[in-house]
Amino acid sequence: MIRFIIYRLLGAIVVIWIVSVVTFLIFQAVPLLSHTNPVYFYTGKVPFKPGSPQLKALTHRFGFDLPLYAQYWHYLSGILFGQTITDGVSVPIKCPAPCFGYSFRQNELVGTLIAQAVPVSLSLIVGSAILWLVGGVSVGTISGLRPGSAIDRIGMTGSLAAVSLPIFFTGPVLLLIFEYTLGWLPDVSYAPITQNPVQWLRSMILPWVSLAFLFAALYARLTRSNMLETMSEDYIRTARAKGLDRRTVVIKHGLRAALTPIVTIFGIDVGTLVGTTVITENVFNLRGLGFLTISSIQQQDLPIILGVTIVAAVALVVANFVVDILYAVVDPRVTV
């Protein structure tokens, strides 16, 4: 077991490392291929003639005069051990590990920007995850218990329809109906739950619904097929034969077995969503990780992109890792 955990842990670290290298290289390639001094991608504004002392000073300040591996090591060591960022004038900024660097465009530590965005994304993901888990599993259970019935067909066709609806369509439609036409949600600007829980709820309800819609459909289908399979197992038949009532059998035995794989997939899905709720955050103007990503990609604000990508990779890898371990605990046959 311990060997298994260590093996998985190593795998997770390797994946995160590969992600950091690939992202780093992609954005290092831009200035190289377009013959541009990378300074422009950091400050975006100040034009200096090539070879001028000002440009050299800037290049040096950002460390672009170092060889590539040194730049990468500088970045990596910042994440591992923290670093102190200085421009030689301002009070040096202490950036404790994990330090993702400093965005000179935003005049802010990348870590701070990510920390500001994380609560927004988490609000979105956790809320909609609860919605889709409850909604999807209920629909799936009902369908699975009566395969072929009208309810089942409606549920399954409906879930296919839900999967076919893009958020960038459902989102504006929901906004149009509830914010602008009915006026039920007149102000949907985000407020942190700690400051104004009512406003937080109001701002989150539509994003939750639109995101949960997609996943609920998937979970409904999954639950249904697992339910169908479980209910035909021998031990369920035995339980029924023992005279247990249907409700007890369904809930205590059927659902429990059917839900085990769902829970593991749930873990991975939640992990995957960290940093990738780009469209939902865009449609609803939520300044979470997804929004941060795309806005920094458009500004080619390299430190932020690297930071978010690595955070997203870590979330995903951790989710996979936890699920793997859980699986191994549940089913001891799983080995390396």
């Binding site: 377009s34 541009t36 422009y40 991608f41 975006g44 504004k45 034009p47 458009q298 500004q299 080619q300």
Partner: peptide, 16 residues
């Protein structure tokens, strides 16, 4: 080109 590089190195670079 995307907004930031447009002004610096795309339309903003006579060579480009």
């Amino acid at each position: 080109a995307d907004g930031s590089s447009y002004y610096s190195t795309f339309a903003g670079s006579p060579a480009n």
